[in-house]
Structures are given as structure tokens and as C-alpha cells.
């Protein structure tokens, strides 16, 4: 007899414990969730870079990257940009509301393979959420010794779009991480870098020696930043990327997230540039 498994479409239930507006225009919010059942939380063992299908029961479900790090115990966080039905629903959420969650889904960043290496994190815009998770993870005292130098290059259109100001401040205080913030244009009071992410990558010139680069952001930023890395001698195998495709089930069943024979929801969303080059250009 086959082992009976639970219905994989049934979400675990959580409660909204906090809501933080992340930007000036207020279309990006981070919601913090606490599992209603302790055992569900225990079963939700995730690594940075994974995502979950989160839902407002009665409105619908959508895939969102996990913004918290497994080292932040007790709750999990998602940073959500207001786009359509479900994401707008989340923006209207209040503390105490019930949120369904299925997951963790996807492969996540290769935390094991990155051990002993220098890590260069390059992010643009609000796609920084799973990068937040990753950096918090490697900075945790339990794991810091497993990884070498950590560089973060994080770009935004303007200062009002910079997410996670609280953790960025904490990182600034530490001497075991190099955080480079940039915005597209000069702004009064801005003391950090100015310029597109690719230009800053060129300036910082991270060495490919024993290193991994992790890139998340709008397609144009990814393309230009990757071009700079290649110029600096980086190999396709060293450059990692997280993809987005329209998703429904998040568990390799509904079919729609395929790129060639790969399902982004289970085989991804993280792929190296070398892997992507072998896949059809259909994403």
C-alpha cells in the first residue's frame, strides 16, 4: 500500500502579527506571520531563497519569496508589492487576520555549496526580500564562520524605495560585511553611492576568486550587472539568479511554470547562469 499523504493544497493557518510599510509610496508591505499550530511551524523548515504559496482564504493564493531568515525564530515574513487581487488583499490586511500558507516551495539559495566562499549579493528594487533572508542567515553567529567575505550591493530608484532600513542599519554597524547602497539619481541628504547597480558593480569590482554572486532584480539590472561580472572574469556557474513565472500550485502539478522540461516552482526558482543558458529562452 502507498503511504497516505495529506492533501497538498490545504494551507496551514497563520495569524498576522505585524505589518510594516516598506516604502514612501506605500505599495510594498512586509507582513509577519505566526503559525497557529506550533507543529506546523516546526514542519515549515526553510532555507533562504525559498518561497511559499500564501493565501487569503476567500480571495486566493499567490507565490511570495520568504523574506525572513530561518534564524529569526518564531515568525516568518513576506514582503509584498501591491499588484492584483491577492496582493492588494494582503495590503488591506490587519493584525489578527488569518493567512493560509503552503510550503516551503522551491530549491532556495545553495547555502551548503556556498560554504567557505565569498558571497556577493546584488539586488535591485523590491526583489531584495530573499536576499534579506540570505544575508541575515549568513550573518547569524551560528553560520557566520561558514562563509567568508560578504558584500552587498543594493540599488534603488530613490531613497524612498530602500527596503528594510532597520536591518540595513544593523549591517552598517558590523565590520564583517560590506554594504554598498546606491540610488539612480542624486538626492539631497543621500550620502551613499549614486548610479545604476551595474556601474557600482564595476566600481566595487568584486573578485571572482572563490566567490558566488547572487543577483535579484529587474531584468535590465540583471543583464547589465551580469555583463560587468563577466567582464571581471566571473564564470556562469558562479552567478545565481532567482526566476519568476506565473504560478498556481507551487508544487509541480498545475503545469504553468515550466521553462523547457524544468518546473520553476520545484526545480527553481534559483538557477545558475550556466543552467539558464542550457534552458530555452522562454521566461
Amino acid at each position: 500500500m502507498r503511504k497516505q499523504l495529506p492533501n497538498p493544497y490545504i494551507p496551514m493557518l497563520t495569524e498576522v502579527v505585524s505589518i510594516t510599510s516598506e516604502n514612501k509610496v506605500n505599495d510594498i508591505k512586509t507582513i509577519e506571520l505566526k503559525f497557529k499550530k506550533e507543529e506546523d511551524y516546526k514542519n515549515f523548515a526553510y532555507i533562504p531563497g525559498q518561497f511559499a504559496e500564501i493565501s487569503l482564504i476567500g480571495k486566493g493564493e499567490c507565490p511570495i519569496g520568504i523574506a525572513s531568515s530561518p534564524t529569526e525564530e518564531g515568525t516568518i515574513k513576506f514582503t509584498i508589492k501591491k499588484m492584483g487581487t491577492v496582493t492588494s488583499g494582503f495590503h488591506n490586511c490587519e493584525v489578527g487576520d488569518t493567512v493560509g500558507i503552503r510550503g516551503p516551495c522551491g530549491n532556495g539559495w545553495p547555502m551548503e555549496d556556498m560554504k567557505g566562499k565569498n558571497i556577493v549579493v546584488i539586488g535591485g528594487g523590491f526583489a531584495f526580500s530573499t536576499l534579506r533572508s540570505l544575508v541575515l542567515y549568513v550573518l547569524d553567529e551560528k553560520y557566520r564562520k561558514d562563509y567568508k567575505d560578504i558584500t552587498v550591493i543594493y540599488g534603488n530608484r530613490d531613497s524612498g524605495e530602500v527596503l528594510y532600513q532597520d536591518v540595513l542599519e544593523e549591517w552598517d554597524k558590523r565590520d564583517d560585511i560590506n554594504v554598498v547602497l546606491t540610488i539612480d539619481r542624486e538626492e539631497e541628504g543621500w550620502t551613499r553611492k549614486v548610479g545604476f547597480v551595474a556601474a557600482i558593480v564595476k566600481e566595487v569590482a568584486p573578485s571572482p576568486e572563490n566567490a558566488v554572486a547572487i543577483i535579484c532584480g529587474p531584468p535590465i539590472m540583471i543583464r547589465t550587472a551580469v555583463a560587468e561580472l563577466v567582464e571581471l572574469g566571473w564564470k556562469d556557474e558562479q552567478i545565481l539568479n532567482s526566476l519568476e513565472m506565473r504560478m498556481k500550485c507551487g508544487i509541480g502539478k498545475c503545469g504553468r511554470c515550466n521553462i523547457g522540461n524544468k518546473f520553476v516552482c520545484v526545480d527553481g526558482p534559483v538557477f545558475s547562469l550556466a543552467e539558464l543558458k542550457k534552458m530555452p529562452n522562454e521566461y
Partner: peptide
């Protein structure tokens, strides 16, 4: 062919509903 879409069907008067899957097509 097994692709499907997922939607909610609500019975607003009775505060209940169901999440369903329906055949979809690539």
C-alpha cells in the same frame, strides 16, 4: 493533459466557499 487553474468560489451570504481547480490549457 493535466494543467489546471486554481480559483476560489465564494458563497458570500453564508460566509463559506471552496477552493477549486479547473482544467486549464497551455
Amino acid at each position: 493533459c493535466t494543467c489546471f487553474d486554481v480559483i476560489e468560489e465564494n458563497d458570500k451570504y453564508n460566509n463559506r466557499g471552496r477552493r477549486i481547480r479547473i482544467w486549464d490549457t497551455c
